[in-house]
Nucleic acid binder design. Structure first.
Lengths: 381, 381
DNA sequence: CTGTTAGCGCTTTCAC
DNA sequence: GTGAAAGCGCTAACAG
C-alpha cells in the first residue's frame, strides 16, 4: 500500500514507530526512513481534504507561521528552509485556501458585475472587456443579470454584497428609479462603478460614451441626407443615456431649423414587443416620419423588420440610424447606419476605474468617444 | 450624538455606567435605560464592520452559540430568547457572513460556469437558463470564458477550483484535446457537468442535443429541396458535436444515394475568418456545391455573407442550413433555415443535473430534442 | 530567523 | 435550554 519515498517499491515498506505524533516508515529494500506526507494520509480519510500549510509544517517539523512566511515570499527566512517548504508545497500541489484569506482580510478578490441582460451584443462585450482587466489584477468575476426588473436588481445587489464582493460594476435596469440599494453599497464602502446606464445622482464614478455628440451626429447626418421628418424612438426617461441622446436629437433638429414634433418622439422600455408596437404606430401616422433615429441597434433592427413587413422601402422611404454598432447591423439588409461606441473599451475602462477606486476613491464621470458609421439604411442618394 | 432608544431624542441622553463591559445610557427625558447596539458602536471604529453574532450576543448578554442556534432555527431554545435574538438581528440588519461558513463547511455556494465565448446567442442563453435554476437553489454563479484557448481554459479551471466552487458547468474549447485538468476536478470530487461541447471520455454527466438527428433532418431537407451537391462546413473533429453532426450529414447523403465528396467536407476551428476563407474556397471549386450545411448559425451566416458578396443567389444557386436558431437567422435575408435546439432549457437541465450531482453522483448523458425550422435560405421551389 | 498566540465569523460537539 | 471550547486555514503582531 505504501510506496517507498526513495526506491518507489511497495513490498519492503514497514512502519517504524511514531515521531512527533507522525507515523514513520522504513524501507527494507533501500534502507530509507521516511514519513508519509501528511496530506497523503489525510486524503485517505477525507477525500476532499486540501493540502494546508499545517500539513506542510507537520511534515517538515516546523511551524505553520514559517511555512506561511516562506509561501508569502517574506525575506527574513533561511534560504534552506524556504527551499524545503517551496519544494514540498509544489510536490503536494499546495493551493492556498482563498476562503481563509477572505475571512481574515474581509477581501474575496471577487468583483460583481450586474447588467440588465446579456442577450444582445452590448453587455457581453462590456463584460469581456472588464474581465480582461480584472482577471489580470487577480480578481474573479461574479455576473448577475437583472432581466430589466428592479426587484431582481435589488435582490442581486443584496446577493452580491452578501457574497462580500470587493467591488461592483453596474448598469441599471430601465425600471430603476429608486437607488437606495446602491446607497447601501456606498455606505458599506464597497467600491461601485456605473457604466452605460448610470446613476449620476450617486457620488461614485460613472463611465459613459459621448451619447450627446453621437446622437447629434446621427441626426445631423439624417438631415444632411435630406430627411426632414425625423422621429426618435427613445429609451425611458429614467436613463441618463436616453436623455442625452434625446438632447442630441433635439439640438440637431434645432440647429437645422427643423420643427420638433412631439408625435414623433416616443419613450419606451426597450423591450422587443414595444419596439415593434411603436414602430408600427409611427409608420401608421397620418404624416409618418421619413426617418427614425433609434436609441440603440436592437431597436433600430426591430424598426427595420417592421418597415420591411409593411413594404416601406429603406432608405428611400424611411431612413434609419441606430446606436452601438452591434455586429448584426452590418449583416442586416440594408446594413444599418449606427453610432459606434467602444464597447469593449468601456468594460476595460470601468474595470480600471473600479480597481483605482479600491486604492484611492475619486468621483468622476468618464466619457468615451463615439463615431458615426454610415451604411445603407440612411443613404438617401 | 446618541439618540434615546425609546423617545428618539438626543439632548437628554447621558452615560450611566458600564455593565458587563458595555457602556449603558440613560435618557433623562423619558427615563429610559438602554445600551447602544454593539454594532453601532463598532461601526464608528471600523466603518466596514458587519454585524456579527457576537455583536448580538454581547448586546443581549448571552453567548454566541445561543444566537447561532436561534438564527439557524434550532428547536431546543427558549421562545423568549429566540424572539429577542431574531428581533435584534432584524433591527441591526444582521447578515450572516458566508465566508465564515464557507471556511467551516468547505462549501462556497458558488458554481463556476466555463464557456468558450459569449459573443453569440448560444452561450449567454445557456448561462441564463443555468442561472435561473442555480440562483433559485441559492447558488451564485462565477462565469469564465476561455476565448477558445486551451491554455485559458486550464487557467480558468484552476482559478475556479482555487475559488473553491461547489460545482462546474463546462463547455470546452475547440482546442481541448487533453482533458487532464478536468480529471483533477473529478479527483477532487467537485461535481462537473459538461454541456454542448462535452467530454464523453470523462465519467461525468453530459448534456447535449440530438445533434445527429438534427443534422440528418437538415441535410435530408436539402436533398428533398432538390440540392444534390451538398457541402458540410464542419467543426473541429475534437468536438463530439462536430462528429455527430457530421455523421448525420453522411447518413442522410447515404440514405438518399448521394455520393460523399471529400472535397465538400471541411473541418474548421469556428473562427469567423476561417469561415469566410472556407466559404470562399467552396464557392470557387471547379464544381462548387449547390448547398451547404453549416455546423452552426454563425458559420451559416458567414457563408451567406460570402455568397452574397460573390453574387451567388440564395437559395436558387446555393441552399444553406445552419444549426441553433440564433435570432439573427430570422433577421438575415433570406432568413436562414436552421435546426432549433432548446438552448435555454439546456442551461436549466445542466444546472439541475449539477445540483443532483452534488447529492448523489450519477453518470449519464442527457439528450435534448432538436427541430428543423425551414426558412428562405433553403426553399428551392 | 522562527515559534507562539490570537483572531477573522461561524457551527458544533460536549458539558452542565 | 444554554455556555464553553474547539476548529475551519490563514496571517500578523509579538517574542525570543
Amino acid at each position: 500500500m505504501i510506496k517507498c519515498a526513495k526506491c518507489q517499491q511497495i513490498d519492503f515498506v514497514q512502519k517504524s514507530g511514531i515521531v512527533r505524533g507522525k507515523q514513520r516508515y522504513f524501507c527494507k529494500a533501500c534502507d530509507y526512513h521516511f514519513t508519509l506526507p501528511e496530506a497523503v494520509e489525510n486524503r485517505k480519510n477525507k477525500p476532499r481534504h486540501q493540502v494546508t500549510i499545517i500539513d506542510i509544517a507537520n511534515e517538515l517539523g516546523i511551524s505553520k507561521s514559517t511555512v506561511s512566511r516562506a509561501l508569502r515570499g517574506h525575506t527574513d527566512i533561511h534560504e534552506g528552509t524556504r527551499k524545503m517548504i517551496l519544494d514540498l508545497a509544489q510536490q503536494l500541489e499546495y493551493q492556498p485556501n482563498p476562503l481563509a484569506n477572505a475571512l481574515l482580510k474581509s477581501r474575496t478578490n471577487i468583483v460583481g458585475i450586474l447588467v440588465p441582460e446579456f442577450r444582445h451584443y452590448f453587455f457581453p462585450t462590456v463584460i469581456m472587456g472588464a474581465q480582461e482587466i480584472l482577471s489580470k489584477a487577480g480578481y474573479n468575476v461574479m455576473i448577475c443579470q437583472s432581466d430589466e426588473s428592479y426587484e431582481t436588481e435589488v435582490a442581486n445587489v443584496k446577493a452580491l454584497m452578501n457574497s462580500r464582493v470587493d467591488g461592483l460594476l453596474v448598469s441599471v435596469t430601465t425600471q430603476t428609479n429608486n437607488v437606495d440599494h446602491f446607497r447601501t453599497v456606498l455606505r458599506k464602502q464597497v467600491p461601485l462603478v456605473f457604466f452605460n446606464r448610470v446613476c449620476p445622482e450617486l457620488d461614485t464614478p460613472q463611465v459613459i460614451v459621448d451619447d450627446y455628440a453621437g446622437a447629434f451626429q446621427a441626426v445631423e447626418h439624417l438631415i444632411q441626407q435630406g430627411y426632414r421628418r425625423i422621429a426618435h424612438l427613445a429609451g425611458p426617461v429614467s436613463l441618463l443615456v436616453s436623455r442625452l441622446r434625446m438632447k442630441g436629437y433635439l439640438d440637431a433638429l434645432q440647429k437645422h431649423g427643423l420643427p420638433v414634433d412631439n408625435e414623433l418622439i416616443i419613450h419606451y422600455d426597450l423591450t422587443e414587443e414595444k419596439a415593434r408596437i411603436y414602430a408600427n404606430y409611427l409608420l401608421s401616422l397620418a404624416q409618418p416620419p421619413d426617418a427614425i433615429f433609434a436609441i440603440n441597434d436592437p431597436t433600430a433592427i426591430e424598426i427595420m423588420l417592421v418597415a420591411k413587413s409593411r413594404g416601406v422601402k429603406i432608405p428611400q422611404e424611411l431612413g434609419i440610424v441606430g446606436f452601438s454598432n452591434d455586429p448584426i447591423s452590418a449583416i442586416i439588409e440594408p446594413p444599418l447606419t449606427t453610432v459606434e461606441q467602444p464597447v469593449w473599451e468601456m468594460g476595460r475602462q470601468a474595470a480600471r476605474i473600479l480597481l483605482e477606486q479600491m486604492e484611492n476613491p475619486r468621483i468622476e464621470t468618464y466619457q468615451l468617444p463615439t463615431k458615426l458609421i454610415v451604411r445603407g439604411s440612411s443613404m438617401n442618394a
